[in-house]
Simulated scan of single mutants.
Amino acid sequence: MQTLKNSQIMDNEIKELMIPEEKVAHVQLNNPLDHALLVLIKSGYTAIPVLDKDYKVCGQISKAQILDSILGIERIEMERLHEIKVKDVMSEKIPRMNKDETFGKALTLSINHPFVCIEDDMGSFIGILTRRSILALINRYLRK
C-alpha cells in the first residue's frame, strides 16, 4: 500500500478536483433565510457558500445556523425566516484557497469543514473543493 508522505499527491494542484462555481449552490448576503433554507434543502447540502454581489466569498451558511436563529424559548419561530438576512446568521470564518495551491493545503483545510472555497487571483469565487472529493482521491491513491 502507498503512503501519502512519500508521494507526489501532496504537491498536486487542486484544479482537477474542484467543482466549478456554476455548479455550486450558493446564496447572497441579503437573501432572506427562507431562501437560504430552500437552497440548502433542494441541494442536499448541509452548508453552502455566501457570496457578495461581486462574487467574492463572504462566508458560509448551514441548516444548523438557520434553525438555531429561529429557535424561540417555547417554539420554532418559522415566521422569522423571511425577516432575517443571511448576513445576520452566516459564519464569516470559512476555509479558502487559491486555485493554484496544493492538495496538501486542501487536505489540511478540509479536516474541520465540508468544503473549501476556491478563488482566482482577483479573489473571485470560482468553485469549491469538497471533503468528499479529497477523500475519494486519497482512497484511489492508497488502493493502487
Rank of each mutant, 00 (worst) to 15 (best):
T102D: 15
V116D: 01
V50Q: 13
P49Y: 04
K15L: 00
F115R: 00
V27Y: 00
N98A: 06
R80L: 15
H26T: 03
S7E: 06
D54T: 02
N6P: 01
K56P: 01
I128C: 00
A36V: 06
L135A: 05
M18A: 00
D120G: 08
S110K: 07
I73Q: 09
V27D: 03
P20T: 00
M122W: 10
E22H: 04
Y55D: 10
K99H: 06
F115M: 14
D11P: 01
L67N: 14
S62C: 13
I19W: 02
L107A: 11
R131Y: 13
M1V: 08
P114K: 10
L81N: 05
D34A: 04
L40A: 03
H26M: 04
L17H: 04
V24G: 01
K85Y: 05
G44A: 03
L81V: 08
N31K: 09
R132M: 00
L29Q: 10
V86N: 05
M122H: 10
V57L: 11
G59V: 07
H113E: 07
V116P: 13
I111P: 00
T3A: 11
L135D: 01
D121G: 01
K53S: 12
E22K: 03
K5V: 10
E13H: 11
K93Q: 14
G44Y: 01
T3Q: 09
I138E: 06
H82N: 10
V50H: 13
I76C: 11
K105F: 02
P114F: 12
L67V: 12
L109E: 04
